[in-house]
């Protein structure tokens, strides 16, 4: 629970290498820290500041802007019930009330067993599947109260098939060195070579 561990650090270095300016890697690295610890610790922010060459205050400024980046511990599962307009029209408020009653917490709160943090979130782009929710950013569509209860049971039993909070994509981008085109640094670049192509040359080459 602290700075990035060696495994995370190696991934962090690869992520940084994809950007012309290291600071661009800030948000991906904050996700990485959250994946490691379940939330973004101050130690991780300070470490990331070192990695991308900014101050910890600047990392905090960025980190605190984005809702997904949690600076305090949260439950193993974030259950985010959509409260966007489309879901609202189809009963999200009732679902949220049900969730509050079932879990015994208000939105933003975490159950006593530390398993579930409930949030009422803005539109998550599943509007035709209202009311919907996400568990650690995995969708559940057209959720009834019964569906919700089942979900809670599954989460508590560990049978929901959802990775702990912090883990997003199960596949990471990886660019092998031989396939890498190379970052385009902001200064000192010339016009890309292919722009000089004309159709005749190209056709003859294809």
């Amino acid at each position: 629970m602290a700075r990035l561990n060696p495994g995370s650090l190696a991934i962090a270095q690869e992520i940084i290498s994809r950007y012309p300016v290291a600071r661009s890697a800030l948000i991906p690295l904050l996700h990485l820290a959250q994946e490691q610890d379940g939330h973004v610790t101050e130690e991780a922010m300070a470490h990331i500041a070192e990695l991308v060459g900014v101050t910890p205050a600047e990392v905090m400024g960025t980190c605190s802007f984005y809702e997904m980046l949690k600076r305090e511990p949260v439950g193993e599962y974030m259950v985010n019930i959509c409260n966007g307009i489309s879901c609202h029209l189809l009963g999200s408020s009732e679902l949220i009330h049900h969730a509050e009653a079932t879990l015994g917490v208000r939105p933003g709160g975490t159950t006593d067993d530390g398993k579930i943090t409930l949030e009422a979130v803005e539109c998550i782009a599943a509007c035709t599947e209202a009311p919907c929710l996400q568990v650690n950013y995995r969708y559940r569509n057209r959720v009834s109260t019964a569906d919700f209860d089942q979900l809670v049971d599954d989460l508590r039993a560990g049978t929901a098939g959802v990775a702990p909070h912090g883990k997003l994509a199960k596949v990471r981008q990886h660019i092998g060195d031989e396939r890498r085109a190379g970052v385009a640094v902001p200064d000192g670049q010339a016009q890309p070579a292919w722009l000089a192509r004309n159709p005749t040359d190209a056709e003859s080459g294809s």
Binding site: S24, Y66, M68, E178, R179, R180, A193, W194
Partner: peptide
């Protein structure tokens, strides 16, 4: 990338290379 569509020398072209970098937001 593996199939040569993205990255160095797209479809074998010597003069056309471009990286696509996947980036995530964080809720805003």
């Amino acid at each position: 990338y593996d199939a040569g569509y993205v990255g160095a020398n797209v479809l074998g072209a010597e003069d056309f290379s471009v990286d696509i970098t996947l980036h995530w937001g964080a809720g805003a």
